[in-house]
């Protein structure tokens, strides 16, 4: 056992972990943040994508102790006082979700991309999402949503009212 400190979705945590615990297990099993999904468990599918110190990472490939002192954003951290993030809102409006299992990872990858490159082309969005496998949607509506989110972010409509 060891103790680590980290920030997740703007909240400080001090937790005891096993040294062989993966970050995804810390998030899901220990902290109950089950929005992050485990798909393949070997870094191929992207369902477990989170943002760690500004970079998108597969949380199944990061050990929990490696997150000591880090700042993490998961899908639960996107909503702000009951209001959806512009990316989440765009996903709903564009009908980008089918079964939904890959969607938290896709949305986090989209956020990681737009945080760094606020105005990507459609091809750059494809590249930014290419680490996230989706079996249902064919990705195109997720790309439409990313483009819509870019417009929302430009318009500064972060403070829209959540009508859902």
């Amino acid at each position: 056992m060891m103790e680590i400190q980290l920030i997740i979705n703007d909240i400080n945590y001090k937790v005891d972990i096993d040294v062989n615990m993966r970050l995804i297990d810390l998030l899901r099993d220990k902290l109950g943040l089950t929005g992050t999904k485990e798909g393949c468990g070997e870094g191929e599918c992207g369902a477990c994508t989170i943002i760690m110190d500004g970079e998108s990472v597969n949380s199944c490939l990061v050990m929990a102790f490696q997150a000591n002192g880090s700042n993490i954003i998961t899908i639960e951290g996107l909503e702000n006082n009951g209001e959806l993030d512009p990316i989440q809102r765009a996903y709903m409006e564009e009908g980008s979700v089918q079964c939904g299992f890959c969607i938290p990872g896709l949305i986090i990858s989209t956020k990681a991309l737009l945080d760094k490159h606020p105005n990507p082309t459609r091809e750059e969005i494809r590249e930014g999402m290419s680490g996230n496998l989706c079996r249902c949607t064919g990705y195109n509506k997720a790309i439409d949503a990313a483009q819509k989110a870019i417009e929302y972010l430009k318009e500064g409509q972060n403070d829209f009212k959540n009508s859902w």
């Binding site: 798909g39 191929e44 494809r126 290419s130």
Partner: peptide, 16 residues
């Protein structure tokens, strides 16, 4: 494994 059984990614898909 998804590293051996290849699904299309967003870069393999095109606008239809």
């Amino acid at each position: 494994k998804f590293s051996k059984y290849l699904l299309p990614t967003s870069m393999d898909m095109i606008d239809v």
